[in-house]
C-alpha cells in the first residue's frame, strides 16, 4: 500500500510517503504559518523526487489535531480531495497519537500547548514490544490547566510516564513535585513525525478502520468563540 501522510496541525509541516514497510521519504519542516503556500508545492516535489504520480497513491493519512484550525483545514481539504478523485482510503489521526506512537514506553502523556498555562493532552498505554503498535488511549483528548495534571493522572502515580510534545518541561516539574515518575524524550521526538503518521494510517486502514471523507473533520476540541459567547449570554437570562 502506497500511503501519503500529511500533517499541518502545528508549526511543523509533515509529509511522508510509505510503501508497505518501506519509508520512501519524509519532510518535517518548521514553517509556522506558511502551510497554505508550501503544502502543495512540497507534495509535488516529494512525488517528483521519488518518481511517483499522484494517481499511484493508494491511501492518505492526515492529522486531525488538536492544532491550528486553519492549518488543519488545509491538510484535511487536501486529503479529502485526493480521496475523492482517486477513490482511495483516507484515515484521520490525532496529532497527539502521532507523537505518542513515536516513542517506546509503557505510559505516554502526549501534549500540545493550548496557551495560557493550558495544554491539549491524551494519555496512552502502549504495547511497544510489537512491530507497528497502536497506542491505546486511556484519557483525552481534552484540554486542561497544567496544574490540573497531577489530579487527572492520579491513578498512574506508581507507573513510569513518558511526557512528549510541547510544554514537557513545565508539566514534568509539576508532576515530579507531586511524586510522579517521569521520563522525557530526546528532542527530535517532540514533534508529530510524518513517517509515524503514515505508518499509523497504513495500520488502521489495514484493520479496516478508515474514515468517510464526507464526514472527516478536525478534532476542534473547542467551540467557536462566538458560539461560546452567544451561549453564555442566553443561558444566563
Amino acid at each position: 500500500m502506497l500511503i501519503l501522510g500529511i500533517d499541518t496541525s502545528t508549526d511543523n509541516l509533515g509529509l511522508a510517503l510509505m510503501e508497505d514497510d518501506q519509508l520512501k521519504g519524509e519532510y518535517n519542516l518548521s514553517l509556522k504559518r506558511k502551510h497554505s503556500e508550501k503544502l502543495l508545492p512540497l507534495i509535488e516535489q516529494i512525488f517528483s523526487l521519488l518518481e511517483i504520480k499522484p494517481k499511484d497513491l493508494e491511501a492518505v493519512a492526515v492529522s486531525i489535531g488538536p492544532g491550528s484550525f486553519t492549518g488543519l483545514r488545509i491538510g484535511i481539504t487536501t486529503a479529502k480531495i485526493l480521496g475523492r478523485i482517486f477513490q482511495i482510503h483516507v484515515k484521520g489521526i490525532s496529532t497527539l497519537e502521532i507523537m505518542a506512537a513515536g516513542v517506546e514506553s509503557n505510559y505516554i502523556l502526549s501534549m500540545l500547548d493550548a496557551r495560557r498555562q493550558r495544554i491539549y493532552y491524551s494519555f496512552y498505554k502502549s504495547n511497544f514490544g510489537n512491530n507497528n503498535y497502536l497506542p491505546e488511549k486511556i484519557l483525552g483528548a481534552a484540554s486542561a490547566q497544567i496544574s490540573e495534571m497531577p489530579d487527572l493522572l492520579n491513578d498512574f502515580k506508581k507507573e513510569e510516564i513518558t511526557v512528549i510534545g510541547e510544554k514537557t518541561t513545565e508539566v514534568s516539574e509539576v508532576l515530579k513535585a507531586n511524586k510522579f515518575i517521569i521520563n522525557k524524550c530526546a528532542s527530535e521526538k517532540n514533534i508529530p513525525r510524518a513517517a509515524v503518521l503514515a505508518r499509523l494510517g497504513r495500520d488502521y486502514i489495514s484493520l479496516g478502520q478508515e474514515d468517510n471523507i464526507y464526514e472527516l473533520k478536525p478534532a476542534y476540541l473547542k467551540k467557536p468563540q462566538a458560539e461560546i459567547d452567544w451561549q453564555q449570554k442566553y443561558s444566563n437570562n
Partner: peptide, 19 residues
C-alpha cells in the same frame, strides 16, 4: 475571509496537482 478562502483554494490546488 482568509480561513474560508483557504478551503476552496487548497481544494483547487489539490485538484490541479492530481489531474
Amino acid at each position: 475571509l482568509v480561513g474560508g478562502l483557504l478551503v476552496t483554494l487548497t481544494a483547487a490546488k489539490t485538484i490541479s496537482l492530481s489531474l
